[in-house]
Design a protein around this nucleic acid. Structure first.
Lengths: 114, 114
DNA sequence: CAGAATCCCTATTGATACTG
DNA sequence: CAGTATCAATAGGGATTCTG
């Protein structure tokens, strides 16, 4: 009987980390030098999403050690998100995704009449 | 109001193509010179999955033009799957995923007591 | 062998209201 | 501002059966 290979096979593991509906986009947006506040991040998202969903995705990525949540404990609340070290190292994948994604979009535009 | 950016933003697009539970692994397994038959592919999968699920994922990837399905029309059936051109170009992403995934696994092993 | 069809079940998302 | 809590809606996956 085969076993769960999360934490063993790099592909299975990466798939699980990236499985959320917005994870790649969030990691991409956080991939700069400035930490980003919650609402700011929501406004930057390319598509509509509720704060409930964003909150959940952020929590998931935090649990997976991809991002760091810094709560300033102020009123009104001020929370900033940034990439962790292992999250930053994901940049090489993001760069390839951007290149490939661009190629894929062009390819689909050429090949699809619709 | 924000719009659906599938087909516009490379990250959103890549996320949608990769959203299946096994897509990355399937693309990785098909990433060689030999086409692979259905049952053979199922046996190669690192974790248990039913043929129903594999069938669905393959259909999805075929619809997204990532893979090519070749039906030999024989009895008993013989169907081979291989990567399309745009699917092959995904290799650069897969390579980075493998590297990063390996780093991530090591990182998690060092940092998690459990 | 390589599915399709079906049903069921769970996980994920979305919508809304509430809070310090 | 940055959430949480709750509930409803949906999609995706799994199990089983049937087929040529």
């Amino acid at each position: 009987m085969k076993k769960n290979l999360y934490g063993k096979c790099p592909y299975v593991t990466a798939q699980k980390v990236l499985y959320g509906k917005w994870t790649i986009v969030i990691l991409h947006l956080l991939n700069n030098d400035e930490p980003i506040r919650f609402n700011e991040l929501q406004r930057m998202m390319p598509e509509e999403m509720t704060h409930t969903t964003l909150s959940r995705q952020l929590k998931y990525l935090e649990k997976e050690k991809m991002i760091i949540r810094k709560d300033y404990g102020e009123i009104p609340p001020r929370v900033e998100y940034s990439l962790s070290e292992i999250g930053k190292s994901f940049k090489t994948v993001l760069d390839e995704i951007e290149k490939w994604g661009t190629d894929y979009i062009n390819f689909m535009n050429v090949n699809n009449a619709e």
